[in-house]
Design a protein around this nucleic acid. Structure first.
Lengths: 192, 192
DNA sequence: CGCGAATGAGACATAAATGTCTCATCGACC
DNA sequence: GGTCGATGAGACATTTATGTCTCATTCGCG
């Protein structure tokens, strides 16, 4: 087996394991390394061969989440068309990542002191830019800061993911529910 | 010392400890019993005398959170006036509880299998009723279910609490930011 | 078939949190 | 002052997850 082929094979496995870990941790954020290994269908020893420890695994999961989210932002083409349409596209594209995003979002809360992965800052900046563009174009209101709107988007993404997970929101309604609430709010149009 | 007085004194201590525990766990949800004891200014032995274990403490904290939230719902007088004004009052009254609420909200995610405290159901029902009233009175849109609107409210409350905690949202803007976004959404009024 | 890398199974030591216990001290009340 | 209950300090055993190691097995590839 050539060196390059070995590397490629390990890379594939790594990704596969991370996906399984994400699926499990999304449901049960306190799962042990043993749980994760079993969920990924490998032994705990092999899991440790791929990731130095739990921390390293979480960090790798974070990298994957950042990469996937960045892909979603790319796919949403935030600079094209109206800002509201772009926001709808973004919410749709984020759907497959929502579970991991919710996990990492709350996980970051308890990292407390440690520095957060700079990758998030770049993503935040792109979303900020979307809201700012909408404000400059006159589509979005200007009394709410892009920073808060970004946080609110994350919050609703998480709420949507958990609601679907617990059966309180039909998966088919998820995109509409998040986008409509975030864009239009609770108030009826005719009453404004 | 009379029996009744002893009971009353212990009740006061209990509440005080729970408040301190809430304040700490809100910031660092993985704090150990030792951390909690130190934060409450008591010894770990005493902490164990008041609460059988970590589980029991979390449950007691949940009870307190439910009680405080119920008080906030009372204070907001959800049945009085317009549904939108009632919602604004609710968001304001929930502010002091937001931290604990955020902690318990994510904590419930990882209870997974175990049954949740029925107290939440009663609170949810009251908030559902508020949204339903708004819908029946024609103030709120009807294409989003009260259940989802309730989840969205929780999500925004949490997002607000975390944003304030991490300095991304000024505390003074918190009420306005949550209420305006939830009621009116991101879109500008004039563009509708 | 034979070689070598990767894996699985499991033993083992370690670390950290938890729960339980004892004992000395403090403080309120009689 | 004396007594009783609550507390603080700390030892101790237990549990649980973690990280490391060894060894046999398996699987792909030449």
């Amino acid at each position: 087996m050539s060196h390059s082929r070995m590397i490629r094979l390990m890379a594939v496995d790594r990704e596969r394991v991370l996906k399984d870990a994400a699926a499990l941790l999304t449901r049960k954020s306190t799962a042990s390394m043993d749980d994760i290994a079993r969920a990924a269908g490998i032994s705990r020893a092999t899991l440790h061969r791929h990731f130095a420890g739990r921390d390293a695994l979480i960090r790798a999961l974070e990298e994957l989440g950042i990469k996937d989210t960045a892909r979603a932002l790319d796919a949403a083409r935030l600079e094209e068309g109206g800002a509201d349409a772009a926001l709808r596209r973004l919410i749709g594209e984020l759907e497959p990542v929502a579970g991991v995003l919710a996990f990492l979002y709350t996980e970051n809360q308890l990292f407390e002191g440690e520095e957060i992965n700079g990758g998030w800052l770049a993503l935040d900046a792109r979303i900020h830019a979307l809201f700012r563009r909408g404000q400059e174009e006159g589509t979005f209101r200007i009394d709410l800061t892009p920073a808060w709107l970004t946080e609110a988007l994350y919050g609703l993404i998480c709420a949507g993911a958990w609601s679907v997970h617990e059966g309180r929101l039909a998966r088919a309604d998820r995109n509409h529910s998040i986008a409509e609430l975030l864009l239009g709010g609770v108030r009826r149009e005719s009453t404004r």
